[in-house]
Nucleic acid binder design. Structure first.
Lengths: 205, 205
DNA sequence: CAAATTTACTGAACAGTGTTTAGTAAACAA
DNA sequence: TTGTTTACTAAACACTGTTCAGTAAATTTG
């Protein structure tokens, strides 16, 4: 009975095909200007076909959101090689900013847009990707505590605080709310602020 | 020649009428589910009429965004009465969080959605509301420096850092990315984080 | 192998969206 | 009173996400 397996394979292939087209369009022209019909055009299938593989647009963008988390985790993976735990946390911050600036649409999908979270909600599942990356941050902080860099023991609260700062910084930038600075100064200001924040956590966490 | 003045008044009235309807619908059913046709229905005019008073949807939501800033500034106005400059800055933070939690749609409009900023961009004006409220934050920080609470003299960088943290905290919450905590714990965690952050800036800024 | 059934897909429709335009009726100016 | 401007709208355009009846091919059954 290899037929069922082949059909399952073909189904996965089709899901990939759709996802690849969706990603392409999404990344090159943004979420708002990407329609199911556009995606259907690219893969040369009818729009209705997409609904045989993804329940709705939210599910489709949830799948992309998962991919995005995979990419972020990949970019943070080589972090374990850094010995000093504080340096590691700082490098984690650098890469988080880099990821957000280089992949604004993916960042939006991961941490701002409703669509993926709505997809989760109506299947009432937990936000595993979020949990996992938040876990990584907590781990990095725990290591700093163990190494004696941080005294504060409530790692969860420390993690929220650090993540809030990081998310705020990049999303103010991504959503064009840094227009009080010249365009060419914005990234510089972010760097300056990041340096200040690292000093803050080093001295008081 | 009182006719021209009356017409101008009528024009303003109509803009108000549209804006009130838009605000009502927007606040009770969200941005995504509010259409020009819905607004037209409420005020009992044709959809096309709205376009005689607002260039497009972006302009309409820019007007609401301005209102929202007025409301935030109002909520922060009675702050000047607080004598101690550090206590004042902290209270400012409290009220910022309160505003965001109580007016999630307005907060979205002010700091996350593209629409209002796009309206600005295509008229190439500066983001005055943003500048003004950022100015208020800088003022509050300057007062803390003057009073000897803060040593750090780069107020602009301090302001970005504090605002980033505040914005991150509330927008993670508003965009439902705090699901790693039970629903009833989320606001508590935010408070705990805020307390930690106040300690951080008190000790190192 | 032929017939019956399942699977994969699509055209067309539904109910909406933002926006534009041609045309109309009322208000105003001459 | 005539001519012109103003305020408004019906209808259309080009879209959107989503559903569903119908079709043709693939697969299973007799």
């Amino acid at each position: 009975m290899g037929i069922l397996e082949r059909k399952e394979r073909e189904r996965e292939d089709m899901r990939r095909l759709i996802l690849n087209a969706a990603r392409e369009l999404f990344l090159e022209q943004g979420y708002e200007k990407t329609s199911i019909r556009n995606i259907a055009d690219v893969i040369e299938y009818s729009p209705a076909t997409i609904y045989l593989y993804y329940k709705d647009k939210n599910e489709l963008f949830f799948a992309l959101h998962e991919e995005a988390f995979l990419k972020l985790m990949e970019e943070l993976s080589s972090l374990q090689t850094i010995q000093d735990s504080f340096a590691r946390l700082i490098e984690m911050g650098h890469r988080y900013i880099k990821f957000a600036v280089e992949n604004p649409e993916l960042y939006d999908l991961m941490f701002i847009m409703k669509a993926p979270i709505e997809a989760l909600a109506c299947r009432d599942e937990v936000w595993e990707d979020g949990l996992k990356s938040f876990g990584l941050l907590k781990w990095a902080i725990q290591e700093c505590v163990t190494a004696g860099y941080f005294k504060n023991t409530d790692i969860e609260v420390s993690a929220i605080t650090i993540w809030s700062y990081m998310h705020g910084l990049v999303s103010i930038y991504l959503k064009n709310r840094m227009s009080m600075f010249q365009d060419n100064q914005q990234l510089q200001r972010m760097q300056q602020s990041f340096v200040l924040f690292t000093k803050m956590i080093k001295e008081t966490l």
